[in-house]
């Protein structure tokens, strides 16, 4: 069965075509979707392609940085930390030039690997996501969007354009390039520290226990150990690493990311 492609040429048209999302598959760069189709996934889809909807830019205005959902990951490689470093760790140059930010936030973890490596740095940057779908448009913290993203069309993400220190620590698995298995991201802005991990659970995860421990004066290492409480019961067990391994390595990654905050560099 042949697929049908909808190719909106503006954001308004994309929102109207998406409606409540029923029966539609959104196509960003296709780097997650195409392998699924090649592996015998569904055919005859109705596909909403975002490539020409004017959602591919990055802008800085009114104190925020806004990234369109169809922006390629390669465009983030020199942006704010810890997002830039996380972006440089995704896949390889060809995949990064095609894969979109929206696809990275909306992709489902596969049986083999978690994916969605930009989710944690965006949580650490206190990003919000603007989406449309049933009930109209809404803007919410990215961690809330991740918990309720089904049936939504992500339009853009924004985070405050302030000066902050950031940290990023990653455990990688060698391939032709190195895949991130999991990573910890931290950002400190006016004394408040936000911490998030990627590759531990089904989606990027904010580490409120770590953040609270830091706020109440715990040392970085003691606070980092609390990440185990944050991801308890949600640790993934997949082809990249076992839950056992994740549980033991995650505190070290968080501690390293926090140590970079003290050094004042990402």
């Amino acid at each position: 069965m042949t697929s049908e492609i909808l190719l909106p040429t503006s954001q308004e048209e994309a929102i109207a075509s998406f409606g409540d999302g029923g029966g539609l598959t959104v196509l960003g760069g296709g780097t997650a979707l195409m392998p699924e189709l090649a592996a015998g996934g569904p055919s005859g889809l109705r596909v909403l392609c975002l490539a020409r909807a004017g959602l591919d830019g990055v802008s800085r205005s009114n104190g925020s940085v806004t990234i369109g959902a169809a922006c390629p990951i390669s465009a983030l490689e020199e942006l704010d930390e810890p997002l830039a470093t996380a972006a440089r760790h995704v896949a390889d140059p060809e995949v990064r030039a095609q894969a979109t930010v929206g696809g990275n936030i909306c992709v489902e973890a596969s049986a083999e690997s978690p994916r969605g490596d930009l989710q944690a740095p965006l949580i650490a940057l206190a990003a919000t996501g603007r989406s449309s779908g049933a009930g109209g448009e809404r803007t919410e913290p990215i961690e809330n969007f991740l918990a309720s993203r089904d049936g939504r069309l992500l339009l853009e993400v924004s985070y405050p354009d302030t000066s902050r220190v950031a940290g990023y620590a990653v455990a990688r698995r060698p391939h032709a390039h190195h895949y991130p298995i999991m990573a910890a991201c931290a950002a400190r802005d006016s004394g408040t520290t936000r911490v998030a991990v990627t590759g531990a659970a089904r989606t990027g995860h904010r580490c409120t226990s770590v953040e609270q421990a830091l706020a109440s004066g715990a040392t970085a290492d003691d606070a980092a150990a609390r990440v185990v409480d944050d991801v308890a019961g949600e640790l993934r067990d997949d082809a990249l690493a076992s839950a056992w391994y994740r549980e033991r390595v995650m505190p070290t990654l968080v501690a390293r990311a926090l140590a970079q905050l003290e050094e004042g560099s990402a």
Partner: peptide
């Protein structure tokens, strides 16, 4: 002019 994976690229793009 830019390098791409043709296996990941749907014709529509």
């Amino acid at each position: 002019g830019e390098a791409r994976r043709s296996c990941l690229t749907p014709l529509a793009l």
